[in-house]
Design a protein around this nucleic acid. Sequence first.
DNA 1: CTGAAAGCGCTTACAG
DNA 2: CTGAAAGCGCTTACAG
Lengths: 339, 339
Amino acid sequence: MAGFRKVPAPTLESVAARAGVSRATAGRILSGKAGRGENSKAVHEAAAELGYVANYAARSLMTRRSDAVAFVVSEPEESVFLDPFFATVLRGVHEGVAARERQLTFIIVSSEHDRHRLQQFIVGGHLDGLMFGAFHGADSLPDAVRALGIPVVQCGRPHEADDDLAFVDADNVGGGRAAAGYLLDRRAFVVHVAGPADMTPAQDRRAGFDLELAGRGLTATQDRTVHAPFTVQGGREATEVLLDRHPQLDGVVAASDAMAVGAIQALTARGRRVPEDVGVVGFDDVPLAEAAQPPLTTVRQPIRQMGREVADLLLDQIDGRSGPRHVLLPTTLRVRGSA
Amino acid sequence: MAGFRKVPAPTLESVAARAGVSRATAGRILSGKAGRGENSKAVHEAAAELGYVANYAARSLMTRRSDAVAFVVSEPEESVFLDPFFATVLRGVHEGVAARERQLTFIIVSSEHDRHRLQQFIVGGHLDGLMFGAFHGADSLPDAVRALGIPVVQCGRPHEADDDLAFVDADNVGGGRAAAGYLLDRRAFVVHVAGPADMTPAQDRRAGFDLELAGRGLTATQDRTVHAPFTVQGGREATEVLLDRHPQLDGVVAASDAMAVGAIQALTARGRRVPEDVGVVGFDDVPLAEAAQPPLTTVRQPIRQMGREVADLLLDQIDGRSGPRHVLLPTTLRVRGSA
DNA sequence: CTGAAAGCGCTTACAG
DNA sequence: CTGAAAGCGCTTACAG
């Protein structure tokens, strides 16, 4: 093989020489800091002819900017890429970052070593800001990063209330209420298949469910809720528990679409028809919801837009624009066949 | 809000001062270019106490390295993140890149403007190498990038034979043969639901199918193949065409698992049972294959490992190690319930 | 092994 | 608006 060598890129020096001006002048004109000088045209032409692009390392050394931001996930590597929620968030994030001409880097932190490397990476000046997309438990990483003095936005409400930590989330409480309300208007005994108790979206959806029941005078309903992982299997097993506990149930609010599919499996296995005997409402409105049999009535959260907002919030901070620190996007009930 | 300011990072200068040596010496010791000097310990301690990390922009300016590589997809943005194939490739790529301490950047090129920006980005020195993950049609982008003098690896066989362009692929020809052979051993009339004619994996799988038929003395079998998109719908529609054309068919080699699911839908709709009346073999072995009803007999390609190999091949080029330029990973038949 | 010095390519006060 | 000059933080021949 021939071996490779980077083609030497043209420098500001060479552009200046070709245009017959100083390096400083060429630099100012190309960065738009010199309005309408005599030399403007000559410099632009020289740059175009040479295919000049500023060397980013040199620029970064002066400006202390990298023009790169990272999306960090601290889930175990396995799940991230195949999770349709993250996949869609990422789409929005990419869109928002690209629209403002920054570079998106992708980082997975799954070990102590990874955490350490990320810190090194930041101290080294690689990143202007970070977005975090983890939901499990309380994570100290966002705070640790903020202590380094760089902007951070969290995707999803953080565990501890912290007015300084910017975040974007869907209105999970409202969504939980809407789902519960829809079923309570139509069914006699409604239960909740909740997500993991240590994840804020699960907590908020459950809070919405509880709120709606309480609003209708239903109290002491804790035994109507069972927590489980956000998966088909989790939904199936939680529903089995609830069926044993409340054989009369005829409405299920599931905390995710996958869980709703599991709930339908469990119900069907016990001879209950959906939606004839039991109404089931999902949450998220991922592709699975439409593909399910029957198609899922579900609470839609605008996942892609959440990604965009995360990117925008971060970039606003980096650029020193003031704006909201917390964004809560509305959720909406989509009625299909399952309830 | 308080506004933010980057915490000034410690410099080599400050480490040197604290250790009582020159900047040059400190730099050499920290980069391992000075073996066992008197000062070694003092410098390491000073660096640890200060939390020193080399400023990457300054380093990059000298070394002409960015220590970052990019995975580039030129599909329209929509499909990439949700495609389980790319999701899994990306997992492997991330793993391989992280293992060698580089940074992975993710780039989507969906317009002329995006292409231009990518070129700028490269000329600006942001990237040490690129991986391409597009399959549709002949794409000039990898060549354009290589012309800039930086290493490139393609994920999947490129359209034009080009010994200089490194690539990683699964043995699609072998997989196509295996699928056809398996069915031909058991069935009387086997057809092929092929992928898009302009995509190399589809071409190679079909070539394997044709080869196997020819090897058994079956000629003039072009009318046993119909091309369609790599989707459930594509598989369904192609199968309908084949059923009209060859009502006697009793074996289907599908070019993807999604297509196999579509084939099963079409067959079932026409009253054929799978696998009793017709055997169906998929390709890829994505999660869908196991979840399908019946579970798919399919040709497995080691997708994640492909990602790893792509990363390794690229990093080997960047590091100047010589090695294979083309890697073909074996495919294996997984027998489940559909054939 | 060590230090003084040059230089990577850019941006930015400082004078004019 | 323009130019000469300093400086960002590092690496790396060059002498010793």
